[in-house]
Design a protein around this nucleic acid. Structure first.
Length: 498
RNA sequence: GCCCCCAUUGUCUAGCGGCCCAGGACGUGGCCCUCUCAAGGCCAAAACACCAGUUCGAAUCUGGUUGGGGGCACCA
């Protein structure tokens, strides 16, 4: 990891065109980890040169999502920095200047072809089963003539003058060298008719100006990667290290996530969008841990990581270039692990909104008491109200049939419930260390199994067939409620019997 | 159609020529613990896509095939 000791300047450069998903969260995470590990800077840059695709609120979502994950940026549109502005829409002139520089040095040229002509050209190429590629019509217009036409106000774009022959070799940190024939690289448009730069130019200019040392981005950029290097070389700039991350596939591993898959996932309480995670009961710690391991590994036995661990242990050299299927059950597993890793008070705090959302008035002291029995049982925060809502209710409403113990009649069950009530009432306290030994003795005397008797009590007291341990629960609920709930159960069972 | 990338159990992966009849994790099945449910512990089933080649020896190197993915815009 010697080269990682050089402070890295990395940038997360999303475009505000939709929701932040797992793929971009991972890219941001890796960027952040590399920056923090090397004592460098993490820069947030908004790539909003295409005003048609701009989505209102997307930029805010990007920022709040990063903050939720625990990722703070050193430079960005809101906090500023020495290389701003950090919003590409505010840098239009900069890109145009550099594009003109390329025209002057002979690496780019003005193109006056209309979109209609281009469409026509593409159709013809398709009919002839050729590659789609600009045919070079404007490539050889005399520069003086071209400049005159531009000065005259003729609509035009600026295209990159890709070498017609030879090859270009580029180096990706995960895949090694990639060599491609130059004739396969199109004369890409750098600046549109409206004067706005395209990604290819804007990103390269910004990365240079912002002194970016490592570009971590999605593998969808692999095909235009040679163009990007050619651009940088045309300017005579130094290249950053390039890291192209693999894409995420749907859980089956067959194909990438589609709209339809996303809708299907929602039914199971899953989402690929970061904005949904908190509401679904996931911890940012778990998202970070889970996502970090999709395409990266540390060794063959360590998988539990906090952000702090990751900053220490992350490394580009253990990144995996193959596509990874999203595994949501593993997400649940990591969430459970991180829930169990939380301090009681912290977990309690995070649980409050979930109980309130379900309509419970939360007594924080009671919540604090039930944390130990809840903490090892939930995989997501959202599960807590269903499991432990009975602690916050005045009354419970058991299904009468569920009060009947396995292998017994309603009449027997009623008698058992009544006996339990009486025995508990005899005691000074229903604390676990007193009530449990006593009730176990009672069970013994009656000749039933603990499962049968405690089962009846469980349903009577919690209203649920499945609950956290009985005696711990009773202690928290308190004598009065325990007794009244048992009384009610006796009543229900007797009604059922008659 | 063309170009590029990828390829170990259902999934995420370790493995960088002999340590591997392949290790870990999730999930699955079983057992233990047990008042239910979890958590925890133990055990089990489950993979080197295929075909050539290189080599004394290949999951590891090379070529091809197949499969998957990405791209081929005046989007990013």
């Amino acid at each position: 990891m010697s080269e990682n000791n050089i402070p890295a300047r990395v940038r997360f450069a999303p475009s505000p065109t939709g929701h932040v998903h797992l793929g971009s969260a991972r890219t941001a995470l890796y960027d952040y980890l590399l920056a923090r590990q090397t004592g460098g800077q993490f820069i947030l840059r908004i790539e909003d040169t295409d005003r048609k695709r701009y989505v209102e609120g997307a930029e805010e979502e990007i920022m709040s999502t990063l903050r939720w994950l625990g990722i703070e940026w050193d430079e960005g549109p809101d906090v500023g920095g020495p290389y701003g502005p950090y919003r590409q829409s505010e840098r239009k002139e900069i890109y145009l200047d550099y594009a003109k520089q390329l025209v002057e040095s002979g690496h780019a040229y003005y193109c006056f072809c209309t979109p209609e002509r281009l469409t026509e050209m593409r159709q013809e190429q398709q009919e002839r089963k050729e590659n789609y590629r600009y045919d070079g019509t404007c490539r050889n217009i005399d520069p003086t003539e071209a400049a005159a036409r531009v000065a005259n106000g003729e609509p035009h774009v600026i295209r990159f003058k890709t070498p017609l022959t030879g090859t270009t070799t580029v180096k990706d940190e995960l895949r090694g060298e990639i060599t491609i024939d130059n004739h396969l690289i199109d004369d890409y448009v750098l600046v549109k008719t409206d004067g706005w730069a395209l990604y290819h130019l804007a990103a390269m200019v910004d990365d240079h100006l912002m002194k970016i040392t490592h570009v971590i981005r999605g593998s969808e950029w692999l095909s235009t990667f040679p163009l990007h290097c050619l651009l940088i070389r045309a300017f005579g700039w130094e290249e950053p290290k390039w890291v192209h991350l693999s894409v995420f596939l749907k859980p089956s591993g067959k194909g990438k996530m589609s709209k339809r898959d996303t809708a299907e996932l929602a039914k199971d309480g899953y989402s690929i969008f970061l904005k949904d995670m908190e509401g679904l009961g996931y911890l940012p710690e778990a998202v970070v841990n889970w996502v970090s391991l999709m395409g990266w590994s540390y060794d063959d036995h360590t998988e539990f990581f906090t952000m702090k661990d990751l900053i220490e242990k992350f490394g580009l050299e253990r990144l995996n270039p193959s596509p990874a299927a999203i595994n949501f059950t593993k997400f649940d597993h990591f969430n459970g692990l991180h829930i169990r890793n939380l301090a009681s008070a912290d977990l309690a705090q995070r649980l409050v909104p979930f109980f309130e959302k379900t309509g419970y008035k939360v007594d924080f002291n009671v919540l604090l008491k039930i944390i130990p029995i809840l903490q090892e049982r939930i995989a997501t925060l959202e599960e807590a109200p269903d499991m432990a809502g009975f602690f916050f209710r005045d009354e419970v409403h058991p299904v009468p049939q569920e009060l009947v113990a396995k292998g017994l009649t309603a009449k027997d069950s009623a008698a058992i419930a009544e006996k339990c009530l009486k025995e508990l009432q005899k005691l000074d306290t229903i604390q676990k260390d007193v009530a449990e030994p006593h009730m176990r003795e009672v069970v013994e005397q009656m000749g039933y199994s603990a499962g049968q008797v405690f089962g009846i009590m469980r349903v009577a007291i919690t209203g649920q067939k499945v609950s956290p341990p009985l005696f711990e629960g009773m202690e928290i609920i308190g004598k009065d409620k325990v007794f009244s709930r048992l009384e009610n159960a006796v009543k229900l069972l007797k009604e059922l019997d008659s």
